[in-house]
Simulated assay, not measured.
Amino acid sequence: MSRRSATLLTSTLLLIVLFCVAVLLPVPYAEMSPGPTVNTLGKNDGQPVLQISGHRTYPTAGHLNMVTVRVTGADYRMNLIEAVSGWLAHDDSVVPHDTLYPQGQTSQQADQENAEEFTESQDSAKVAALEALKLPVQSRVVVGSVVKGSPAQGKLHAGDVIKAVDGGAVKAPTDVAKLVTKHKAGQTVVFTVVPAKGSGDTDIVASGNVTRNIAIRTAKASDGRAIVGIQAEEAHSFPFTIKIQLADVGGPSAGMMFSLGLIDKLTPGDLTGGKFVAGTGTIDDNGAVGPIGGISLKVIAAREAGAQYFLTPSDNCAEASKDTPAGLRLVKVKTLKDSLNALSDIRSGKTADLPRCPAG
């Protein structure tokens, strides 16, 4: 074999080895890409996304699309070739694995966290929408969860409505801890509750208004505080039934679009004027819109679906403006009211008045 042939053979073998290493060697990265979009006014898998019963609804037109991002799973390990390919792709984003799944979080833990955030966002979306329409929403403090092996286990249950602690009225979840920690560990605290009957799709349902006084001996927390081992949270009661049907979606980022979809269905006329509007953003009970992750990928998904306008949380504006797809107008919003005002301008054709996102 000539020297040249030997050199070529050696180089070829080396390239094969390097390729195999690149394929087999895992790297600590995860990939994000534009995900599907769903019209909150329409159907998903044959079922209406927003289902309302017990209150009059109205026909809708146009689109109010929520958007998603696809991510590789917590247990998936990218190889070097996939990472480089993702870095070179315009529509993908490769990020450190710990950015999406901190502290060794498993797929099951990530799914559970996303599901909880999604449920909370639905609840806030309902509250914000009904508050905007001046429809009554009742709030109450409930037992959200009971720690296994704690003094409260078997005495308090998820869904119990907490009326008072030691006779002190409970108006907010933080009141529970304040009243319990007035005691020393080992002392007894008395909860006045309306026992839970079960949980429904719209709110936690208590068994009437019959209260019970339940005595619990406190334990000592690691910092010395008196505790009983529950997580108190706020729950809401709505004057009619609202269900949000959307499988395989997690996280809080669709909150604002759910609120807008509900308002559109509960009021005559069309919020969009038949236009294709997409958007994203968390929402709280008061209608404040918060930032989300993956905004650059979500605007791509929106435009690929056909959106003309994209309702953008103000704190995401700079990032979203860096590479906005052609044909998509970014509209800056801070509150649900801002979004409603923007939709009013869109359906009336006053697009010059729309608050735009500044360049990044």
Rank of each mutant, 00 (worst) to 15 (best):
K148P: 02
K148D: 04
K148I: 10
S150N: 07
P151E: 04
P151T: 00
A152S: 12
Q153S: 04
G154Y: 00
G154S: 06
G154A: 02
K155C: 06
L156H: 05
L156N: 03
L156P: 05
L156C: 10
H157W: 12
A158T: 13
D160I: 08
D160A: 03
D160Q: 04
V161C: 02
I162L: 09
I162Q: 04
I162G: 03
K163V: 15
K163L: 14
A164H: 07
A164G: 08
A164F: 02
A164K: 10
A164I: 06
A164R: 11
V165S: 06
V165L: 08
D166F: 15
D166V: 15
G167D: 10
G168S: 10
A169M: 01
A169D: 07
V170D: 01
V170E: 01
K171M: 07
A172H: 12
A172S: 12
A172K: 11
A172I: 11
A172N: 11
T174V: 14
D175A: 05
A177H: 13
A177W: 05
A177P: 12
K178E: 00
K178Y: 15
L179K: 14
V180Q: 00
T181L: 09
T181G: 10
T181M: 15
K182S: 15
K182Q: 14
K182N: 12
K182T: 15
K182V: 13
H183T: 13
H183Y: 10
K184T: 13
K184G: 14
K184R: 14
K184F: 09
A185S: 09
A185R: 05
G186P: 02
G186S: 07
G186R: 02
Q187Y: 04
Q187W: 07
T188K: 06
V189Y: 01
V189P: 02
V189N: 03
V190R: 00
V190F: 05
F191W: 00
T192M: 08
T192A: 09
V193G: 02
V193S: 09
V193P: 08
V193T: 12
V194Q: 00
V194R: 00
P195D: 12
A196I: 11
A196P: 06
A196V: 10
K197C: 11
K197D: 04
G198N: 08
G198Q: 11
G198K: 12
G198F: 07
S199R: 13
S199C: 13
